[in-house]
Structure formats: structure tokens, C-alpha cells
């Protein structure tokens, strides 16, 4: 193995246990601990098959080693996961890689390191109760189709049960 490669081998990397504890504290994040790096998640991953850099096994490995900088960023590979759950079907260890990736995304959002679009789209649930903008055109089309008008969404209830950011 060349020197260049060996600088990134697990042996030379000090495991960031503090980050792993942080991940363990997020919903479903603890599942990364079950991963034994078999690679069953890789072959049928649609993003992996359409990207030279996305690899669910490597994302799990980075979680195990605590590569916080690589994982917790708006440019992290995790944002290219399609949430298709094929990896969760293949995983013999019940890691549910999509759920670990979602836990990593939750950390990103919490630390202000998620892509802007995440906040922008999800905020509309707090402000409008829904994620699609109501337009007069939509109202008109519903009427033409004989459907009931769009009802007021209970935004106040939503604001009481979730925090804004």
C-alpha cells in the first residue's frame, strides 16, 4: 500500500467517539453500531450506481470512525441518498442505512449545516401546514372537478407541537 493511501486507513485515524455518542443520541442513529462493513448495501444502491462517490458502506464506515467533518455538511454525500430503502432491504444487520443517514441529516439541520432547501421546504409545514403552495388555480381546478374547496390548515396546532428555527 502506498503512503498516500495509508494516511486514510482506519489504523491511522483516531476514532471520534464524541461524534458517535452524538449520533447515538439522535433517533435511529445508534444503528450505525451494528454495521460490520459487509457491503451488501452497495450493489443495488441506485445513487451508488449513478455516482462515482456515493457508497452507503463508506458512509456507515465514516460514521463508525466519526468522520464528522465529512458527514456533517451541506455538501456531504448523505444528501444524495434517494431514501429508496434498498440498502435496508439488503442489510443482514438491521443497520437500516437510510435511517442512519437521516439521523446524520438531523444533526446537520440541528447544527445549521443542512442544504438551504431542507429548511425552506420543511418550514412551510409550520407556516402553512403543508408543503405545496395553495394557488387560485388549484382552487379553480378542484371546483371544476367537483372536489371540495381546500380547507384551512390547523397551523396553530402544528406550531404548538414543533419548534421553529
Amino acid at each position: 500500500m502506498s503512503d498516500k493511501q495509508s494516511t486514510r486507513t482506519p489504523e491511522k485515524h483516531k476514532i471520534n467517539y464524541a461524534f458517535r455518542e452524538k449520533l447515538n443520541a439522535v433517533a435511529e442513529g445508534y444503528r450505525h453500531n451494528f454495521c460490520y462493513q459487509c457491503g451488501a448495501c452497495v450493489a443495488d444502491c441506485p445513487t451508488g450506481n449513478h455516482s462515482e462517490t456515493f457508497n452507503p458502506r463508506l458512509i456507515m464506515l465514516m460514521a463508525i470512525l466519526g468522520f464528522e467533518e465529512e458527514l456533517i455538511s451541506p455538501d456531504s454525500e448523505i444528501w444524495n441518498c434517494t431514501n429508496c430503502y434498498t440498502c435496508s432491504e439488503r442489510c443482514p444487520q438491521d443497520v437500516r442505512p437510510v435511517d442512519v443517514i437521516i439521523a446524520l441529516k438531523n444533526i446537520c439541520y440541528d447544527e445549521g449545516k443542512a442544504p438551504e432547501l431542507i429548511g425552506k421546504v420543511s418550514d412551510t409545514v409550520l407556516t402553512d401546514g403543508i408543503t405545496t403552495k395553495i394557488t387560485s388555480l388549484a382552487e379553480r381546478r378542484r371546483a371544476e372537478l367537483g372536489l371540495a374547496p381546500i380547507k384551512q390548515y390547523p397551523v396553530e396546532d402544528i406550531q404548538k407541537i414543533i419548534r421553529g428555527k
Partner: peptide, 23 residues
Amino acid sequence: DGFTCCPDPIYFQARDKIEWYTV
């Protein structure tokens, strides 16, 4: 009456899973 966004499994779940469960 009274349903809101499910909320969506991509953006909202990426925001905060506990809040996603709650809504």
C-alpha cells in the same frame, strides 16, 4: 377534517425525526 402535511418523508424527516413523528 384537520389533516396537515403527512409530513413529507424527505425534507421534513431530514429536519428532525422526532418532530416528523409528532406531526
